[in-house]
């Protein structure tokens, strides 16, 4: 497979999340300026349009588009529902007491999952904003007595399960209907505690994704870090048969260092794309059947989020001062 960068747009802020309505040309991004913005990527010279209303007060780390509507979550702990026509907030909920790290829309688009550093996963009715369920099971503190962090969440394709992943390498898979814990897995390599030289930690599981058949669970972060002042662990992905609780593959890039911030499967195929970075960014293609790393492409800055548009054979990445489009061919 070959991947080619097409547009590489500069922006002064850091884009943490990107979204769009299927088939539409507008891209929405949540960023470090606490706002939500839109870009028309089909335009000759795409221009950024900021939503005039500023409701969030910190970094916007999750955006999802539904017809006519955008849902955003931010480090300020609030979830917002936006009217995409008026670009105004329809509803705002104080959802978590600490940073919301990611949000995820259920496959049928009826529910929103949010995870935050209060170490609780929450389910919300995407229509009404009502709290449907909470998932509590991640430890509040790391084994070394510091606040832990709940970085990412993902839905199984059938919508029955929700996975949540934390800083110390714990993966919990929840039964959506009952709120019960279904499985607990671990990827401890992704958490580096430095007891001698620096006495703090770095890392964590930063991304999670189910395979299209629901059998595999893929998580991303970085490998063990020597000097934890820098993101210098090798980009790392682990693949589990989550129901059997067995780890099938451990993959570390020899080419790239840094965190794997986002993973997503091709909807009909046995490969996934993992992106992230250190000071610079990377995109990696992984064959999940063999564990083979078949694609390693660099980028000029750290990538925080991406979306795959299969119909357009287009990939859009958002990250540090960049919004970029890519095409791929087999």
């Amino acid at each position: 497979m070959k991947i080619t960068r097409e547009k590489n747009l500069s922006t002064p802020d850091i884009l943490f999340s990107v979204a769009r309505e299927t088939g539409a040309s507008l891209i929405y991004a949540g960023s470090s300026d606490a706002g939500v913005q839109a870009w028309d990527l089909d335009a000759e010279k795409p221009v950024r349009q900021d939503f005039a209303e500023k409701r969030h007060t910190s970094y916007v780390t999750g955006v999802f588009a539904r017809p006519g509507q955008l849902i955003s979550g931010a480090y300020d702990g609030t979830l917002c529902w936006w009217d995409l026509n008026a670009k105004t907030v329809q509803r705002s909920i104080s959802a978590h007491s600490k940073w919301i790290r990611r949000i995820a829309l259920s496959p049928d688009r009826s529910l929103v999952a949010s995870v935050a550093d209060d170490m609780v996963g929450k389910l919300w009715n995407a229509e009404t904003g009502e709290l449907v369920r909470t998932f509590e099971g991640h430890a509040q503190q790391t084994p070394h007595h510091y606040p832990s962090m709940l970085y990412a969440t993902a839905w199984s394709p059938d919508g029955q399960y929700l996975a949540t992943v934390d800083k110390t390498g714990i993966i919990l898979v929840w039964q959506v209907a009952t709120g019960e814990l279904a499985r607990k897995l671990e990827a401890p390599v992704m958490y580096t505690w430095d007891p001698r030289a620096r006495r703090h930690s770095i890392g964590g599981i930063r991304s999670v994704c189910f395979s299209p058949d629901g059998k595999l669970l893929v998580v991303g972060g970085m490998g063990k870090v020597g000097n934890i002042d820098h993101l210098e662990g090798h980009a790392r992905v682990e693949i589990f048969d989550w129901q059997q609780e067995t780890r099938l593959h451990e993959i570390e890039s020899t080419k790239f260092k840094g965190l794997v911030e986002k993973i997503e499967f091709h909807p009909h195929d046995n490969w996934c794309l993992a992106v992230g970075g250190d000071h610079k960014g990377f995109l990696m293609g992984i064959n999940t059947a063999t564990g083979e790393l078949f694609l390693e492409e660099g980028h000029d800055t750290h990538i925080h989020d991406f979306l795959l548009d299969h119909e357009r054979q287009q990939l859009i990445t958002g990250g540090h001062n960049r919004l970029s489009t890519w095409s791929w061919s087999s």
């Binding site: 790391t142 510091y146 606040p147 962090m149 030289a197 703090h200 770095i202 820098h230 210098e232 250190d278």
Partner: peptide, 17 residues
């Protein structure tokens, strides 16, 4: 109290320290 040299992940580092 070491080590605050947060070239990477300044915010997580300061959350801990």
């Amino acid at each position: 109290r070491a080590w605050w040299d947060s070239h990477g992940q300044n915010f997580e580092t300061h959350q801990e320290l």
